[in-house]
Simulated assay, not measured.
Amino acid sequence: NTMKVKILQWHAVASWTWDAQDETCGICRMAFDGCCPDCKFPGDDCPLIWGACNHAYHLHCILKWVNSQTSTPLCPMCRREWQFKG
């Protein structure tokens, strides 16, 4: 006995995630597939930025962090000198 199923309709659902090692931003602790506390909507306006050390942060979080440092900015996670990944 085989049962045949006829699919009348189907809705594809797509989701996207950033390719980061962590699930959340190390600065604001908000999810990478969301956005930083300063933004209302995730996406192009709140991209992820990687450092040379491969740690990722929301663009706005790392910019605020870099601008708040009085000396050479360090990665908030590993304390290596912060450099934006080329």
Rank of each mutant, 00 (worst) to 15 (best):
T17F: 01
S71D: 15
D19S: 10
P47M: 09
C53Y: 05
H11D: 08
K64T: 08
L59C: 12
C46K: 01
M3C: 08
K6N: 12
Q21G: 15
F41R: 14
E23M: 07
I62A: 06
A31V: 01
L48Q: 08
C78D: 13
I49V: 15
A14M: 03
L74V: 10
K64E: 06
M77A: 14
A31K: 12
W82R: 11
K85C: 06
D22C: 05
F84E: 14
N1F: 11
A12V: 13
R29V: 03
I49T: 15
T72Y: 08
N54Q: 10
M30K: 15
C25E: 05
K6W: 00
P47V: 05
K4F: 02
N1K: 14
G34E: 13
W65D: 05
F84S: 07
T24R: 05
W10N: 11
F84I: 08
G43C: 08
S71T: 13
C35S: 07
Q9K: 15
V66A: 07
S68L: 01
K4Y: 05
R79E: 01
C36M: 02
A56H: 02
T17W: 00
C46M: 04
G34M: 03
P42L: 04
M3D: 09
P42Q: 10
N54E: 12
L48H: 08
P37V: 02
L59H: 15
W18N: 09
S71A: 15
C28G: 10
A14Q: 11
P37H: 07
C78L: 00
Q21C: 06
T2R: 13
V13Y: 04
T2Y: 05
L74I: 08
K85A: 13
P73Y: 05
K4P: 00
N1D: 14
F41Q: 14
K6H: 10
I7Q: 07
A31F: 03
W82F: 15
S15Y: 01
L63M: 06
P37R: 02
H58L: 09
S71V: 05
R29S: 08
K85V: 02
A52P: 00
P73R: 04
G86R: 09
H60N: 13
K40G: 03
W10L: 12
T2S: 12
